[in-house]
Write a protein that binds this DNA or RNA. Sequence first.
DNA 1: CTCCTGTCCTGCCGGC
DNA 2: TGCCGGCAGGACAGGA
Length: 285
Amino acid sequence: MPELPEVETVRCGLEPHLTGQRVSAISLRRKNLRVPFPADLRARMEGQVITRLSRRAKYLLIESDASDVMIVHLGMSGQMTIAPDIKSYAPKKHDHMIVALENGGGFVFNDPRRFGMVMLGHSATLRDHPAFAGMGPEPLENDFSGPVLHERLRGRKTPLKIALLDQRVVAGIGNIYASEALHQARLSPFMAAGDVAKAQAESLAAAIRDVLTRAIQAGGSSLKDYRTADGALGYFQHAFAVYDRDGQPCPRGCLYRGKPATVQKAVQGGRSTYHCPVCQKAGRA
DNA sequence: CTCCTGTCCTGCCGGC
DNA sequence: TGCCGGCAGGACAGGA
């Protein structure tokens, strides 16, 4: 489930292999993922030199010297793999896009559940691309702060956890890091987003930054070259405080009636939320 | 506007 | 052992 840190780790892993390389061929092994592959994907990317890899929210941006941008979303199960010798690469099940580079290498986009997307944009107008129009601030950039978050949550009656998943509020947070950030900030996932006080928004913004930054560091340091054994980029073991830990003691050591308080699982908007009911009480400012 | 629900897709896991 | 149901989740459409 790639969220911002995983996508950033994939970006770092791909970058040295792709930057400065010319795309020699793109092979599409089906016509669509969540959305159809752009009809002009090959025409616009083949023959171009990849100048830069960047990221916006959970989207990977592969920029060409013709000012075109391949916009890739990994969805739920998307993986990028480097193939040192693309000519001898044997396609695996669910390999949907294979990109060959002029230096003989290449990369492969594999996505069993096909929640991923590949789109195209222009560098100059990327901000206006439908995927990014109206999107909230990057949590690790300077334009994200407590006051900004407070303003974006203002007036919203939806539960805070649900609001954090809304990419218009803040970009790049998914189900895992929403729970993690709320736990770190000691805020209840159930409180109304609009009830978050200024000081609480400050804590939450700091927690979001910290949780994401530490996850990126874990991705960068836990595996050399950001790669798993099978060559897929960006997936790494990371210790979560509350996510998928229902029934286990709150890592903060909270007590409930003299005994260790345990992480609870709840369902909000059809998605799992994990929290400690002791340190994440819906309280006043 | 905001909010809420359903949809897409496959792999995996628990229950019988 | 095999089958089946349920779950996981990001983005978006469409209805209230």
